[in-house]
């Protein structure tokens, strides 16, 4: 797994979109079209709790962060923008 601690905004975007593409089976172009308001958990029927758990565990591996129970709430998973902000905050806190 790639562990990258010094991700700038664009690199983080690339990692996160790549990860969501892997989970949802999207083409890279489709994943690139994700915007801050693109809905995730609760908006995409295939993104159930098992898939979200996989996504978060993979995020830990690829970004080198640890995600605690308390970090995970509906808001953080609701949109792409919220997930990205969460990842940014976690990386900033490392």
């Amino acid at each position: 797994m790639t562990v990258s601690h010094n991700l700038d905004g664009a690199a983080l975007d690339l990692e996160l979109k790549g990860l969501i593409a892997d989970v949802l089976g999207l083409d890279p172009e489709q994943a690139q079209a994700l915007g801050p308001d693109s809905g995730l958990f609760g908006h995409l029927p295939e993104l159930d709790s098992m898939a979200v758990a996989g996504l978060l565990t993979e995020m830990e591996d690829r970004l080198g962060i640890v995600i605690e129970d308390d970090d995970v709430d509906g808001e953080m998973l609701e949109t792409y923008g919220a997930l990205r902000a969460f990842a940014e905050a976690k990386l900033g806190g490392c």
Binding site: S49, M50, V52, A53, T57, V72, D73
Partner: peptide, 25 residues
């Protein structure tokens, strides 16, 4: 451990959606 972590996390997320409080611990 990674296998369990992923499965436990799925369960806590599902529980939260259902309004139940379950912790990994």
């Amino acid at each position: 451990p990674k296998l369990l972590r992923g499965m436990i996390r799925a369960r806590t997320i599902a529980a939260r959606e259902a309004g139940l409080a379950e912790t990994s611990e």
